[in-house]
Nucleic acid binder design. Sequence first.
DNA 1: GCGGATAATCTCGCCTGTCGAGATACTCGA
DNA 2: TCGAGTATCTCGACAGGCGAGATTATCCGC
Lengths: 171, 171
Amino acid sequence: MYRRRDSQRDQLVAEIANELRQYSVDAQHIGHAFAGLHGLNPTDLHALIAVMDAELLGTPLTPGRLGEQLNISSGSVTALVDRLERAGHIRRDRDTADRRKVFLHYADRGAALAMEFFQPLGRRTDRVMADFSDAELEIVHRFMTTMVTAMREYRDAVRAARPDPPRRPAG
Amino acid sequence: MYRRRDSQRDQLVAEIANELRQYSVDAQHIGHAFAGLHGLNPTDLHALIAVMDAELLGTPLTPGRLGEQLNISSGSVTALVDRLERAGHIRRDRDTADRRKVFLHYADRGAALAMEFFQPLGRRTDRVMADFSDAELEIVHRFMTTMVTAMREYRDAVRAARPDPPRRPAG
DNA sequence: GCGGATAATCTCGCCTGTCGAGATACTCGA
DNA sequence: TCGAGTATCTCGACAGGCGAGATTATCCGC
């Protein structure tokens, strides 16, 4: 395998993969630190963002859906929603049509917190993107779109895998 | 602000920011699910990757450094390293020069697990990148490099912030 | 309108990870 | 050798997550 041309490209690919990994690790650390800073745990922050996302899309989350997204049990969801509601971040609202359902809406405090989280982040990403032309951003956009799709596939694959493999060293 | 030309670009910027966010969320979910699949928790997986990274760079991690990277207490680090060592993922090695120090090296099982984690991921990212020319990947590379730098700045800023703000609703 | 099946959420007891202060082991300079 | 400083580990307390079962509400056939 002495394709000299490709080794250059291979290195490029490896570096990008590495950067993607670093990015996600850093993002995780940021979430962790920010959550701790405000007396939340990572799950709480995650949930808060999910609730906002869903509501901004016009399809408010129910506890059940939230649990699916976060991959946590129903009992944990109740505790989670309790915490967030008690802290004034979100609000529970019964669906008038189907009164078994509960919709989660973010409250003022939750919106403020999310903004406080995303604004500095947005400022930084904007500053980065300012150095790129429209055409370049188009490429980045295309890249990220397909990458997100690929990640979601992997996520679903991992989630679908057997949750109980035999991995004891001594059976 | 009626710069019509920019509204197109603004939308592009917003979409990329959104994709970056989705990417990191998905990455977190993948880590969470994969860890659970193998009887670990997210911190364990995170630590395992950090240990491998450091070792591949030729500067093995110590428990103290690991705790800094993960932003967890010394007590948690000990428990974490105990778990990983007990499961055969990593190994403790005393520094011969300064016997207070402990170096963390990954063991076979840890290497296998990391590979099992990264290989499917790598296959997917490779497949995505195959659809991009060298020039395009260069752009993506430049983008990710600066983005990672920006994220790291934000991370450090959040970590440096006061860890105990007065946020009780009723004093 | 009534009763059983179904669905969404909540309650409860247990387990595990994390914290943080203090103990222990080691190094270095005087 | 002594004492200050550093790295790691120990221990008790607390909080989040799990998952089975209880609770409340809806749907459907009669």
